[in-house]
Design a protein around this nucleic acid. Structure first.
Length: 269
DNA sequence: CGTGTTTGACCCGCGC
DNA sequence: GCGCGGGTCAAACACG
């Protein structure tokens, strides 16, 4: 009787120990889960930041190209005179002058959008051939452009745009990144174009807990400040170790790039 | 094999 | 009506 009792007692103690162990395990998993959730939140913020960064980079590039064109154009035609409104290209049916190398035979104007070439022709007034491009989003996007070397200064390419894009630049970029196959035309993110590496290298994936993400995450009512800071430190260490891993960075960049392709509502610049 | 480029042929508007 | 020239098409080709 006593033996049976002892045996049962042992079993019960063992079961209780098991339960305690499971409880601890559960608690650990719960904490891990919480940390991961926190990290996903951070990643999400960083993803948004990255997206804004890309947007800003493209705007800057277009602005610089435009400024370069204006500067050289007014230098050669106005000898320091001020530009007039008529000479400033409009977004619809506009002309853009892009400086290139003289020996550069490709009629490529990197304007942020991806284009598909559908024809080339030598015109009467200009010995240089004229290339015809359609937006790669066609027929959804009706925009076309003609690119030809400028007669007056062969260093410049004249891109004449016909129509207005009804989508964002990033649709083209996302499509290009996602497909990993691209044309050698004016598409911004094409591997063939020299800007690509520059474009990518300018983006640094800041995965530390700084900026907006830190602002957003405040200690909850049941978190003490100390607990919160400890947690934050742990995650910072973890994130730092991840950022040191080149494979992780590559994987994240690829994921971000593909997510850009699926942006829900594109905005027209 | 899929996707983009090349290039000769074709279309179409315009001036004579 | 004809010829010219700019714009587009589409088959062939190239490339990854």
């Amino acid at each position: 009787m006593c033996d049976v009792f002892c045996c049962w007692k042992k079993k019960i103690v063992s079961a209780i120990q098991n339960i305690e162990g499971l409880k601890e395990k559960l608690e650990r998993v719960r904490k891990e889960n919480e940390s991961l959730r926190f990290m996903v939140e951070i990643m999400n913020d960083k993803c948004n930041n990255l997206q804004s960064h890309i947007q800003e980079t493209i705007r800057t590039e277009q602005h610089m190209k435009y400024t370069d064109y204006l500067a050289s154009y007014y230098e050669s035609n106005h000898k320091g005179g001020r530009p007039t409104l008529e000479e400033v290209p409009s977004s619809k049916n506009s002309k853009i002058y892009v400086k290139t190398h003289c020996d550069d035979k490709t009629l490529v104007v990197r304007d942020g959008y991806q284009w598909r070439k559908y024809g080339q022709k030598v015109t009467k007034d200009n010995p240089s051939p004229r290339a015809y491009f359609r937006c790669s989003m066609a027929p959804r996007c009706p925009v076309k452009k003609k690119v030809q070397r400028w007669m007056e200064d062969k260093r410049y390419l004249v891109a004449t745009y016909d129509g207005e894009h009804n989508h964002d630049v990033y649709c083209s970029i996302g499509q290009s990144f996602a497909s990993a196959k691209s044309s050698s035309t004016a598409g911004f993110p094409t591997p063939e174009t020299s800007n690509t590496s520059q474009f990518r290298s300018n983006i640094t994936l800041d995965l530390t807990l700084s900026g907006s993400s830190q602002e957003k995450r405040r200690p909850s009512s049941h978190d003490s400040m100390e607990e919160y800071h400890n947690k934050k430190m742990k995650i910072e260490e973890y994130v730092a170790s991840l950022t040191k891993d080149p494979n992780f960075t590559i994987a994240l960049a690829a994921a971000v790039a593909s997510s850009i392709a699926d942006l829900p509502k594109p905005t027209i610049l």
